[in-house]
């Protein structure tokens, strides 16, 4: 997407922010349409966000959580896709634990597919909601310095944000211990820091990432304690950033591991607003897709 397309999508999302704050929250954009949320990986907030977004646009929304892996039950991803496709949905929202799985599924169904996160590859609506949140609070994205901190290696949020923020003209920094940095990531248009204090110097936005429990006990970092000491965001480290720097986190948070409660709940935190923007952005995405559905 070009930056103009992105800005247009964010503009559309602004309308849905307003709509969602009204008593009457319903639009008719997707009336009569069927949306299936197909989640191969549990996700409370993304699924709820897509569900609300679809419902507020008037679609019939069905949630399908395929616990753990469908392969274990003997059904392949392709079979699942074909089965759902036969039910004639208009939009399928997919979350899967393997990179490329959403792409694979999209090639096997006739309806529109939204990527709600595929492995460590991408999470486009998260990046869009982050961009909307930043734009509302800073008035712009162009020229801002955004520091993304934490487990970059396993993060689809980081990859999508790197792509989107670069497209919108932000300066992107990555802060992480070396074991959590993907090889070659420096060629994606980012500046790399392993020292958080240096990486935060002058940052306008500090975007924290979740560190999964199974990765914090020796596999990639020695302990949550050491991780928090060097890569956890507290007020002391935050002071390195701009005085008006804002803090974000895609959730769910590990308080005391990557972020202190004081910062998470503090005045500079945008974490709650991100959740609100999530619904609006997803409404905008579904709306944009609806324009291209058959018989639209």
């Amino acid at each position: 997407m070009s930056h103009l397309d992105i800005e247009a999508l964010l503009d559309r999302a602004e309308d849905y922010v307003a709509l969602s704050r009204q008593v009457e929250k319903k639009a008719a954009t997707l009336r009569g349409r069927t949306q299936i949320n197909l989640f191969f990986e549990p996700s409370t907030r993304t699924q709820a966000s897509f569900e609300l977004a679809g419902k507020r646009l008037g679609a019939d929304v069905m949630n399908m959580s395929v616990a753990s892996s469908s392969v274990k039950k003997g059904e392949t991803l392709i079979d699942t896709a074909a089965t759902l496709n036969a039910m004639r949905p208009d939009i399928i929202v997919v979350r899967h634990h393997a990179a490329g799985a959403v792409n694979l599924l999209a090639r096997k169904v006739g309806c529109s597919v939204v990527n709600a996160g595929d492995g460590a590859h991408e999470h486009p609506t998260q990046a869009l909601l982050d961009a909307l949140t930043i734009r509302r609070n800073k008035g712009r994205i162009q020229g801002l310095t955004v520091a993304i901190c934490g487990d970059i290696l396993h993060s689809r949020v980081a990859r999508s944000n790197i792509i989107l923020l670069n497209a919108l003209g932000a300066k992107v920094r990555l802060i992480a211990p070396t074991t959590l940095l993907p090889v070659g990531i420096e060629r994606m248009g980012v500046e790399i820091f392993t020292d958080m204090n240096k990486g935060l110097e002058g940052a306008d936005i500090v975007m924290m990432l979740r560190l999964q429990l199974e990765r914090m006990h020796g596999a990639f970092v020695p302990s949550p304690k050491e991780y928090f000491r060097y890569y956890g965001l507290d007020h002391e480290k935050l002071e390195r950033a701009q005085a008006d720097a804002l803090v974000m986190h895609p959730g769910p948070m590990n308080r005391g591991v990557e972020i202190s409660s004081a910062v998470a709940d503090g005045a500079q935190s945008l974490i709650r607003e991100q959740v609100e923007m999530g619904v609006a952005v997803r409404m905008a995405v579904l709306d944009a897709l609806a324009q291209h559905l058959p018989n639209a």
Partner: peptide, 10 residues
């Protein structure tokens, strides 16, 4: 392992 894998999230 390399830039391509990193971009693809693999």
């Amino acid at each position: 392992e390399g830039e391509f894998a990193s971009r693809k999230g693999l």
